[in-house]
Structures are given as structure tokens and as C-alpha cells.
């Protein structure tokens, strides 16, 4: 055994025997054990590995069968790679907190930028909500977040920037504090910004049974493209690249002039 590394001071030296299997090494690094098995992961999130592991883009012909069974987001495919081989692999993402979650015959929807890796026993699908991905099935996945993840039970209203994802509750909807904008003064305030806005007039609302995942920071992770949904009537965001379901034009704040025009029928 080597004598390098400083006992007592500094971090502990890891080797393949002491590294955990499919668990966190510390808050920022996750160790995946591969025994001839495969994992889907986001491109470029491997920081180191022991053993022999191969990384292949999803377009690799040999992976066609795997992709067909557990990957249903074709336009998004080039951001994902398959790691296969045997050994232990360390995953990390820009020193963000990483955590693993087990799904048992369940479903979980997550912001696309937060999903780092998942087992092929889960299948990945584009969510109807733009910018989100849904995992269905049984298996483990790894997600990154800005600060530790907090689990909440609905009914709950959450800040859009703090939302990481949700499991088992199919009711994500927008909630506006309309009380804030009623009356002449409220309308003026919303329109001009005079009198100040709390910045918390808009939330996401969840009700029903399930779990909501929040990060303990409002700094968003960079969004990963989820692909464009097919352009069909009835598909939210369909045909609009990176569509946020806003329709054409810039997003409008509640109470902006556009709303008044609509009210007056202009």
C-alpha cells in the first residue's frame, strides 16, 4: 500500500475498496459501481474512475436496443451518454450538491438541468411541462441541486426558482397573488412598480398526495435542452423552440398593459 496522503490532516484517501457502491462519497460527489452494467449520464459529468469504463453517445448503434427501451426523448439524445463496463465511477457537477433517489414503481418529474444520471431500469421521458423530464419505473437516479434538497408534502406553494421536481403528484399549476393587485392602487403598483413589489407574487402550487423537491437556493441550474415536442394541436409548447408555453412574444407580467387591453377588448 502506498504511504502517500496525509493522515489526520486533509481529506481521506479513497481507493476502490473504500469507495461506496452507488452512494455519495461526500455532498458533492457520487460513486457509481458498474459490474458490466450500464448507466445513463449527462455528458461530461464523470470526474474520475477506477476500472475500465467506456462512454458512448446515445447515437451509438450498439446501444439502439437500450435506448429504445428506456429513453424516450429523441431530440434530447445528444446530451446523454451511456457509461458501461466494470469499475467505480465518480460523478460530480460544478461542485453542486448531488443526491441519489430510489424510485420503486414510481414516477418523478425533474427540471432538466438537475438530472445527472440514471439507471436504465428507469425510463426517461419528456414532461408535458416544458423544461422538465419525467422518470418512470424502478431504479436509482442522481440529481444535482444548488444547496441540499428539501422534501415537502403538498399542499404547498413554492417559488419557481427553488423547484427541483415532484413525485407522484400530478397537479403543478401557477398561482398568482391576485389580492395584491386588486384596487386602483394595487393596479398602479403592479403596472409601475412604484411602491415596490415583494418579488413573491407568483408561485407554483401543488396539491394531492406526493412529494415536492426543493433546493435551498433560488439560483437555477443551467437548463438542458429537453427537445421540442412535436408540432401538433393540443401539445403545449409544440413547435416553439425551447417553448415555455408562453405563446409568441415576450413573457408578460400580471397587470401589465397587455392585460388591460385585453380587458377592454382591444
Amino acid at each position: 500500500m502506498s504511504t502517500y496522503g496525509t493522515p489526520g490532516a486533509g481529506p481521506v484517501a479513497h481507493d476502490p475498496m473504500t469507495l461506496p457502491a452507488d452512494d455519495n462519497v461526500d455532498h458533492y460527489t457520487f460513486c457509481v459501481e458498474l459490474k458490466g452494467t450500464q448507466w445513463f449520464m449527462q455528458k461530461g459529468k464523470m470526474i474520475a474512475y477506477y476500472g475500465s469504463i467506456e462512454f458512448n453517445g446515445i447515437g451509438h448503434g450498439r446501444l439502439d436496443r437500450l435506448v429504445r427501451t428506456s429513453f424516450h426523448s429523441p431530440l434530447h439524445a445528444s446530451d446523454w451518454v451511456v457509461a458501461e463496463g466494470s469499475g467505480k465511477m465518480l460523478l460530480a457537477d460544478r461542485a453542486f450538491d448531488v443526491n441519489s433517489y430510489d424510485l420503486e414503481d414510481g414516477n418523478l418529474t425533474i427540471r432538466s438541468g438537475n438530472l445527472l444520471a440514471f439507471q436504465p431500469s428507469l425510463s426517461l421521458k419528456q414532461s408535458i411541462v416544458p423544461g422538465f423530464l419525467t422518470l418512470i419505473g424502478t431504479g436509482k437516479f442522481v440529481a444535482a441541486s444548488n444547496g441540499p434538497v428539501v422534501f415537502m408534502e403538498p399542499p404547498i406553494r413554492v417559488d419557481p426558482q427553488a423547484l427541483v421536481g415532484w413525485a407522484d403528484c400530478p397537479s403543478p399549476c401557477h398561482h398568482y397573488d391576485h389580492g395584491y393587485m386588486t384596487g386602483v392602487m394595487g393596479g398602479l403598483r403592479a403596472m409601475t412598480g412604484l411602491g415596490g413589489a415583494s418579488g413573491e407574487e407568483h408561485q407554483f402550487e401543488f396539491v394531492g398526495a406526493g412529494t415536492v423537491l426543493l433546493q435551498s437556493s433560488e439560483a437555477l441550474m443551467a437548463e438542458q435542452a429537453t427537445g421540442t415536442p412535436p408540432q401538433e394541436p393540443g401539445v403545449p409548447g409544440g413547435g416553439i423552440p425551447g417553448g415555455q408555453g408562453q405563446g409568441a412574444g415576450a413573457p408578460r407580467l400580471p397587470g401589465q398593459l397587455g392585460d388591460l387591453q385585453r380587458r377592454f377588448g382591444l
Partner: peptide, 15 residues
Amino acid sequence: GPALLLRVSAQYPLT
């Protein structure tokens, strides 16, 4: 982010 110390030995090369 805190560095990980990874040991390399004859039977365990590291990439």
C-alpha cells in the same frame, strides 16, 4: 468544491 483524494496502486490504476 472539496477535493477527493484518490489512491493509485499497482492493481488499481485511475483514470
